[in-house]
């Protein structure tokens, strides 16, 4: 009898754990900026998905390239057609973990300066990146921001020489997660 209870306990354990330890958001924002003396370009996508497993400190992000919105419609078309080739590579995905996660107490209000490190897959190419991040716990709500730079050359995003002065080789990326929600298991 005892053994059966122990069995059940272990069998149920993973499900209980995940119900409580995974955090999710589907409406985080990712924006990027290209600054040059000629022109500043920015685009925004507020359909960034993120899942954070607080037990293992693993964190993943996924976003559809076609969801980026530019001020100029033509620029958006070129971004999809010529630069990111979104038909071929529809998503950008990050899989990594939070550095020093054991120092973050999600039940204690505060602002935690940390970093996220892992693999960013963009335009079919995967590279290791590390991004400084801030996690804010306030009134039991968890929000987060991260900022990092990527080089277009690292992801084989080619800029024709004619517009080389208009597009920065170094792109600033900002991630804003307004609030992580507990993962609702079905």
């Amino acid at each position: 009898m005892k053994i059966i209870i122990v069995f059940l306990f272990f069998a149920a354990l993973p499900f209980c754990l995940f119900a409580q330890q995974k955090l999710i958001t589907k409406n985080a924002t990712v924006s990027f900026y290209s600054f040059t003396p000629v022109e500043n370009i920015e685009a925004k996508n507020n359909k960034l998905i993120s899942v954070w497993d607080t037990a293992t400190s693993h964190i993943e992000f996924s976003v559809l390239i076609k969801g980026f919105e530019f001020e100029k419609a033509l620029m958006q078309e070129h971004f999809n057609e010529d630069y990111l080739e979104s038909d071929k590579y529809p998503k950008a995905i990050f899989k990594g973990s939070i550095v020093g996660a054991h120092k973050i107490y999600l039940t204690v209000a505060g602002s935690y300066t940390t970093a996220v490190t892992g693999a960013l897959t963009l335009h079919g190419i995967t590279k290791q990146i590390t991004a400084p991040a801030i996690i804010i716990v306030k009134n039991k709500a968890i929000s987060a921001t991260a900022t990092f730079n990527i080089l277009l050359a690292d992801y084989a995003i080619k800029v024709p020489s004619l517009v080389a002065d208009n597009i920065s080789k170094n792109i600033l990326i900002k991630i804003v997660v307004p609030s992580y929600q507990p993962f609702a298991t079905k």
């Binding site: 497993d53 293992t56 993943e60 996924s62």
Partner: peptide
């Protein structure tokens, strides 16, 4: 699970 958090999301 940790390997593929995004699955099904």
């Amino acid at each position: 699970h940790a390997q593929d958090l995004l699955k099904g999301v």
